[in-house]
Design a protein around this nucleic acid. Sequence first.
DNA 1: ATTGAAAATGCAAGTATTTGCATTAAAATA
DNA 2: TATTTTAATGCAAATACTTGCATTTTCAAT
Lengths: 132, 132
Amino acid sequence: MKTSSVELIILDLLSHEQAHLTAQEIYQQLKLRLPAVNPSTVYRALERMAHAGKISVSDMGRGAMVYEAVGGERHHHLVCQDCGAVMTIEDRPVNELFRYLEGRYHFEMITNHLILFGRCQNCQKVSESGRQ
Amino acid sequence: MKTSSVELIILDLLSHEQAHLTAQEIYQQLKLRLPAVNPSTVYRALERMAHAGKISVSDMGRGAMVYEAVGGERHHHLVCQDCGAVMTIEDRPVNELFRYLEGRYHFEMITNHLILFGRCQNCQKVSESGRQ
DNA sequence: ATTGAAAATGCAAGTATTTGCATTAAAATA
DNA sequence: TATTTTAATGCAAATACTTGCATTTTCAAT
Ligand SMILES: [Zn+2]
Ligand SMILES: [Zn+2]
Ligand SMILES: [Zn+2]
Ligand SMILES: [Zn+2]
């Protein structure tokens, strides 16, 4: 794999903020620095980087996959399906499950950014009191 | 919510086989029974049904989300990123993690069909011996 | 420094998915 | 049953994403 200039900029974009960006958002940002870049180049670069484990790809309920640089502390998220709130959770309990499954099923886990959907405390209260 | 005829057929499609079907696959099947159905009707029905908890939506690495009827035994999957093999795993250990997280974060879990990516035993062996 | 192979990019066409708005069908109400 | 209300559908246009192929760039080997 050649070190593509587009890849370098994408990594820079994703590293700066601890961002979860969609392909579209990345493309828009990228155009600011590389005005002539083609959309398909971006889609292909993201696919390549995800496959190489440089970035994670996750459905966070935003209608399109979001990408994040892999590197710092490993983490996961709880996403509220009602209000969209995103909570970040520690790796430990998730990691324990993963180690167990690896042993039990002789499977080597690659997933490194788990997204779980549900309802946050606030939205639970709302529907408890109000109608619905 | 009106009982839409499209919804009924989709549920029937998804129930019959313990299928994980993409929107396109569902649309193609549906056309056999309802030749004049419009694609957007299918996409909208799927969105509605997912939101109502009637079906699960998951990325199983097939390039598009797959839908499955919710109802029988709750289960989850391990998907091999190399060969695409799909293993079905029991709910118990996953459920334990979920209950823990619910208590720890006052979060009510909705995710009911978890997909974890990794490498199956066979593909691990292959890359161990062969090159790469 | 040149040359050649392999990988990345651009471009254009194809496919998939979403969206706004008018119409139709279903449920609720009178 | 007739009327009103609300949700589902069709249609067409817009947007998002993918793919095949020609060209350009990168890296490694002269
Ligand atoms: Zn994250
Ligand atoms: Zn919430
Ligand atoms: Zn399943
Ligand atoms: Zn495999």
